[in-house]
Design a protein around this nucleic acid. Structure first.
Lengths: 218, 218
DNA sequence: ACGATTATCCATCGGACGTTGGATTAATGG
DNA sequence: CCATTAATCCAACGTCCGATGGATAATCGT
């Protein structure tokens, strides 16, 4: 890297870990703890210990405990959104290639979604925890779930351009698919066998998706 | 009631509410609070205030806070189990009446399940909260979920005596159905429209159930 | 009438919590 | 070399929590 792209280090006491920003270290540790035990069961001193810093350092970088919690969610959800929107853009381009391509893209999108949640179970845990806060639910749906649902509806419409959909409630079906996936991830985290479980669940969600069309994929 | 059926009152200071046992009052109040905000976010003084008693009275009747939590779960799950086993017994009798009757009984069982969760949303909330405790998950599945799954598998086997099931993974489908229902209840509690939402979800779960057979009900 | 029993509440204890003020260290910029 | 800035930690504060010992009240058995 050149001096142009590499910004000068700012003054001040050097960080503990020069390779990773302290804030990232703290957020990573806090995310794991919050995902495992929830907001109230995790103490700031515990987060600090897991991150290898003092509790005051945590406060210095993330403010209050609630702000730290929000930051953890924002980071996890941003990763999810990034993956999904990337897959969505690819799916959008498939819309021009006709109904069959759009339908395949929809299956691909579902695969990406399940892959992501299986790889990062803390995403599911945090989703569920926040879903259990009634006042947050509407905001969550609006910011994350609804765009996904709208995209799926769009893909569905394009994919079914040749005929009416068999399923009259795609919104409910998609939401149920999302919850089913969360249940699958929770079961995996609780110690389900693994490989076979994943294969069978994958078959299930694709069949569920096919249910939207009333017939298996061509 | 006669003196035979009505047990004599035992000695001691009289209860505040002679109509309802104090323990029941406390458990009701605690269940509502735990379901809404979770174990750690609820204080014993808060539970005591909601029940109209002192915090020491709560301890006197339910012991530690963890024991109170367990008692709340036990009560809610007992109600769920009672309703489901009653519906299950009715379904078992349908087994003798042939595959079609068993299949109808399966749909009836699903209706009872969804009815129950819609009527008592705190059941869903408590399930989800406890599902998020990894160490509890296996015990929960063993005590509550697995018997239900086994029953459904039994009904399925009887119902499909005339031919092979289209769905090779009934266990996963049933679990997904359960999670989808929990998602539905959470969405309802978060302020979804209501009547139409319920009707459409009902249609969805029955179609999902039909997916186990590969064809709609006769 | 009286001891035994049960239910209830008051007061309090030790500890953990989130938060904050301020000292310390180490780098930069001039 | 020195003022500035940033990062870190230590110590402490006030608060709330779960748990408990003990006093009091009210009913029963005798």
């Amino acid at each position: 890297m050149t001096a142009m792209t590499m910004p000068r280090r700012r003054p001040g006491r050097p960080r503990r870990d020069e390779t990773r920003p302290t804030r990232e270290v703290v957020l990573t540790a806090a995310t794991a703890l919050f995902a495992e035990r929830g907001f109230d069961a995790v103490g700031l001193r515990e987060v600090a210990a897991a991150a290898g810093v003092d509790v005051a350092t945590v406060a210095h970088h993330t403010g209050t405990k609630a702000a730290l919690y929000d930051a953890c969610f924002a980071r996890v959800f941003a990763a999810e959104r990034e993956v999904l929107t990337a897959a969505a853009e690819q799916a959008r381009t498939a819309l021009d290639a006709g109904p069959d391509a759009a339908r395949r893209a929809l299956h691909e999108l579902v695969d990406v979604f399940v892959d992501f949640l299986e790889d990062r179970p803390e995403t599911t845990t945090l989703w569920l925890r926040r879903w259990l806060e009634p006042q947050r639910h509407a905001e969550l749906d609006q910011r994350y779930a609804d765009p996904l649902y709208r995209l799926v509806a769009e893909l569905l419409a394009a994919a079914s351009a040749t005929g009416a959909l068999a399923e009259p409630t795609p919104h409910i079906t998609v939401r149920s698919l999302v919850w089913a996936t969360h249940g699958h991830v929770v079961a995996l985290a609780a110690g389900a066998p693994g490989a076979r479980e994943r294969r069978e669940f994958r078959a299930f969600v694709h069949r569920l998706l096919d249910g939207l069309y009333g017939s298996p994929a061509p």
